[in-house]
Design a protein around this nucleic acid. Sequence first.
DNA 1: TGTTTCTCAACACTGATTGTAGATAAGGCA
DNA 2: TGCCTTATCTACAATCAGTGTTGAGAAACA
Lengths: 146, 146
Amino acid sequence: MKTPGELTELFRANGRKVTAQRQCIFRVLQGDMTHPSAEAVHVAATRQMETISLKTVYQTLHDLAELGEISSLDLGTGMIRFDPNVDDPHHHLVCRHCGKVRDLVAAFPDLQIPNGADLGFEVGSAEIVFRGLCPECRQSALQLSI
Amino acid sequence: MKTPGELTELFRANGRKVTAQRQCIFRVLQGDMTHPSAEAVHVAATRQMETISLKTVYQTLHDLAELGEISSLDLGTGMIRFDPNVDDPHHHLVCRHCGKVRDLVAAFPDLQIPNGADLGFEVGSAEIVFRGLCPECRQSALQLSI
DNA sequence: TGTTTCTCAACACTGATTGTAGATAAGGCA
DNA sequence: TGCCTTATCTACAATCAGTGTTGAGAAACA
């Protein structure tokens, strides 16, 4: 993802206005590796700007996704997650207990896309989701089963 | 998925009661290859039993998933889809326009699960989702772009 | 500075799914 | 077969993530 300054330029270049709320969201996303939900971004943004509304957060996240600066992921955790890492092709590791998401950059960088020709599909992209338990949930699962 | 008769046995063996509503849902799922949503199952069930409630459909689908007879999939189409095919390991092809889902049985039957050990994750399963356009949506996309 | 246009926040609303509670039916047993 | 216990059913309300609307306000640009 670009820096807040670059995003400001990009938004202006695309005829979008740059507000204090948007810059706040840019800063929140910068360097966030947790694949936050809109709600999580809102909570973090609220710490810098008390009155920012959830609707504004949703709208700005959609704008960023439309410009290709973040990607939105539905990983089956009940809400859409936003991933600022759009530069390295990668897949995801999802904790089936707490929903935590981590990038898996090294695995399957060039997954062969099968041709769905026999089914008539025109296949455009492939995503792999690995599900398991994160370190924390693994730990608490162990303690519970004693 | 097992036959309606086998499912009846299985439910009884697990201390669950077998009602006309449940058997109706068993029949609806039998041989359904469309990965229906709960709503779609409800519509089909209503054709056999007018008064069956959506809540009952959700509950029975969850029971079946709990017993491992169907699997529930969140493929990013806005609702959970149910897949009666739990016998052949397979992946999914999802139409990004209409949400139609097809099985891809032959592709990557034995995807190597990377060890998430360096991230502390204990990885249990892997799913690949291929996104593209189904034959029908491809056709209408072509017609629109003329 | 003035004007235009976009964005903001508050609020109501949607659509999928779940919780509640009284009515009803299944399954075991006499 | 009829009764009794317990699970399940339906209807209804509620939840939760996300979206549409609208008047007020701020950004961009001349």
